[in-house]
Nucleic acid binder design. Structure first.
Length: 307
DNA sequence: AAGACGAAAGTGGTTGA
DNA sequence: TCAACAACTTTCGTCTT
């Protein structure tokens, strides 16, 4: 079973303590309750043969936020039942079905549509299930608080997904979200900020290192280049070159430099494209990196080697 | 000819009065 | 609510390989 959270969002500590009895995950460093909706996956009974297991099991499909009723809804009457009923029973059946229909409030209908859209976008971006779940949870909360009013459903879906990505350290750029959802980039950003602020979701600035792996692989760079890019990134953070700057630009520049050092040169254009920034930004970051960390000699070294 | 570089003007968002 | 501001983009001309 994969853990839900790896790092404490408050202090970034990794000493997370799973308290199964209370269904909580607690950060040992700062005491923050990181997650309080854990599901206890153990069964509390034992079964010795198939008969007992039939009798004692009482759960159905897992509960999930990606179904509009969290997978727990009741449907009145399935087709097969319909033909078995007669007279009074048949009337009863129709009455019940009508009821069921009326119970579905506007919220539920909205959720049904939205979650379909959410799944579509999520699978387009090949996002892990956990992120999809989180996004669905965020969206559900947003609907309940009436945050969708005045905004398009799609944009809130995109915003929720973006927020979920950030929380799970699987960063996708706003551009990618925008492309997948067909919502303008500004709009996605706007609703993302709005939703996270209104719901009080902590927004830790995304770590540039999280982008490296994905960028590196789409540029087909070696593992060495990749790991050096992360080293460069870390020293850049020590030099305080990273604060206030867009994380994608920094990640892109680190990769660019690292590729130069390893003789796997990529053009600024290529790197800029996968990172979703312009060459100019890469140039600026790149220059800062060379200035503050003595990297010129490393690049020259690989140049000479070539000759 | 393509890529790298840098200047200048424009954009959208944050901040602080 | 408005203006100043920082980061980033777009555009374009020049230099280097």
């Amino acid at each position: 079973m994969m853990t839900y959270v790896k790092k404490c969002p408050e202090c970034s500590g990794i000493n997370l303590f799973h308290n199964k009895d209370r269904g909580e995950v607690i950060c040992k460093d700062c005491g923050l309750v990181v997650e309080d909706k854990m599901v206890d996956f153990d069964q509390e009974w034992r079964e010795f043969d198939s008969e007992e297991s039939e009798k004692r099991r009482r759960t159905g499909a897992p509960m999930t936020y990606t179904q509009y009723d969290q997978g727990l809804g009741t449907e009145v009457g399935q087709k097969a039942d319909l033909y078995r009923l007669e007279g009074k029973d048949k009337n009863k059946f129709f009455r019940l079905r009508k009821w069921q229909y009326r119970i579905s409030t506007a919220i539920e209908r909205n959720l049904k549509l939205a979650l379909a859209e959410l799944k579509r976008v999520s699978s387009y971006l090949k996002l892990p299930k956990s992120v999809e779940e989180e996004a669905a949870r965020i969206y559900t909360l947003a609907v309940q608080r009436g945050l969708v009013r005045g905004r398009s459903m799609e944009s809130v879906v995109a915003g929720s997904l973006y927020a979920a990505c950030r929380r799970h350290d699987v960063p996708r750029t706003l551009d990618e979200l925008s492309e997948a959802s067909g919502i303008e980039k500004k709009e996605v950003g706007r609703t993302y900020r709005f939703v996270t602020r209104e719901l009080g979701i902590n927004i830790l600035p995304s770590n540039p290192a999280d982008y490296i792996a994905r960028f590196a692989s789409s540029l087909k760079l070696s593992a060495e280049t990749q790991s050096q890019a992360i080293e460069i990134l870390e020293s850049a953070q020590k030099e305080e070159l990273t604060s206030g700057r867009g994380p994608t630009g920094i990640a892109a520049a680190s990769l660019y430099v690292s590729a130069l050092i390893h003789g796997e040169k990529r053009t600024q254009r290529e790197v800029a494209d996968v990172a979703g920034v312009t060459e100019v930004t890469i140039r600026n970051r790149y220059k800062e990196l060379l200035d503050r960390l003595g990297l010129e000699k490393d690049i020259k070294k690989t140049k000479k080697k070539k000759e």
